[in-house]
Design a protein around this nucleic acid. Structure first.
Length: 109
DNA sequence: GAGATGACGGGCT
DNA sequence: AAGCCCGCCATCT
């Protein structure tokens, strides 16, 4: 058994987000729960925050439990919304419908 | 080691 | 519905 380092947590987040099918979205809490840490939603946000602009992780598919973009300030939220719309995700009242685009963690995509 | 921060979530007012 | 507070976890200073 290889010891689980804190840094690995971020890697697990990236690996899971990479599994998120195109055109779908998942919440921070959802990612955390799938990783075995249902209360580590904030930690997931940190992991994505540390990502580089050249990363291959679809961080934009991760939003908050309200179906809203959590990033504040700058072009961050605008970029995320644009990327999602490019994948077919529709925004209603600046929100995404979970029963329509919500990802349950399975390979349904 | 301790304190503060944040791309969160749920509950209460 | 909108705003405020507390709890949770990982990272940074």
């Amino acid at each position: 058994m290889k010891p689980v380092r804190a840094q690995d947590f971020a890697e697990r987040v990236y690996d899971l987000v990479r599994n998120c099918p195109r055109g779908k979205v998942v919440s921070y809490g959802g990612v955390a729960a799938l990783l075995g840490h249902p209360r580590a939603a904030r930690a997931v946000g940190h992991a994505l925050k540390m990502l580089d602009p050249d990363t291959d992780v679809p961080w934009w598919r991760v939003i908050n439990s309200r179906g809203r973009v959590s990033i504040r300030g700058g072009h961050g939220p605008l970029l995320q919304r644009k990327l999602l719309e490019q994948e077919g995700v529709e925004f209603v009242r600046d929100r995404v419908d979970w029963k329509e685009y919500g990802w349950d963690g399975g390979l349904s995509g």
